[in-house]
Deep mutational scan, measured.
Amino acid sequence: KRRTSFTPQALEILNAHFEKNTHPSGQEMTEIAEKLNYDREVVRVWFCNKRQALK
């Protein structure tokens, strides 16, 4: 499976959402994914990886 390359704009939006809520609901992740035109699973993994990076 290929790595997803996030655009700077997408990272800005993802980081803004992460600052508000580090554990978004499934519905929220779906909405973010649709807004950014990414697969929901990609957004889920991004949040998971971001949380791990802060440990």
Rank of each mutant, 00 (worst) to 15 (best):
K1A: 07
K1R: 05
K1W: 05
R2S: 15
R3D: 14
R3W: 05
R3E: 14
R3M: 13
T4Y: 08
T4E: 14
T4I: 04
T4N: 10
S5I: 15
S5T: 15
S5P: 11
S5R: 09
S5L: 11
S5Q: 15
F6H: 05
F6N: 05
F6S: 03
T7W: 03
P8T: 15
P8A: 13
P8V: 13
P8W: 03
Q9M: 11
Q9G: 11
A10H: 03
A10S: 05
L11H: 03
E12Q: 04
E12L: 03
I13T: 12
I13W: 06
I13D: 03
L14Q: 01
L14I: 01
L14G: 00
L14E: 00
N15H: 10
N15M: 08
N15L: 08
A16I: 07
A16M: 13
A16W: 07
H17N: 09
H17F: 11
H17I: 12
H17K: 14
F18L: 03
F18P: 00
E19Y: 06
E19T: 10
E19H: 09
E19V: 09
K20A: 10
N21E: 12
N21H: 07
N21R: 05
T22F: 06
T22E: 09
H23C: 13
H23S: 14
H23F: 09
H23N: 12
S25E: 04
S25N: 10
S25V: 06
G26Y: 05
G26T: 14
G26E: 15
G26I: 12
T30L: 06
T30I: 10
T30M: 15
T30C: 07
E31T: 09
E31V: 07
E31L: 05
I32H: 01
I32E: 02
A33L: 02
E34L: 12
K35W: 04
K35C: 07
K35P: 01
K35G: 10
K35M: 11
L36S: 02
N37D: 11
N37C: 05
Y38F: 08
Y38R: 12
D39Y: 03
R40K: 13
R40A: 13
R40N: 13
E41R: 09
V42A: 14
V42I: 09
V43Y: 00
V43P: 00
R44L: 06
W46A: 02
F47K: 02
F47E: 01
C48V: 15
C48M: 15
C48D: 08
N49Q: 14
K50C: 02
K50R: 13
R51I: 06
R51M: 04
R51P: 02
Q52N: 13
Q52M: 07
A53Q: 14
A53K: 07
A53H: 13
L54G: 12
L54D: 07
L54P: 14
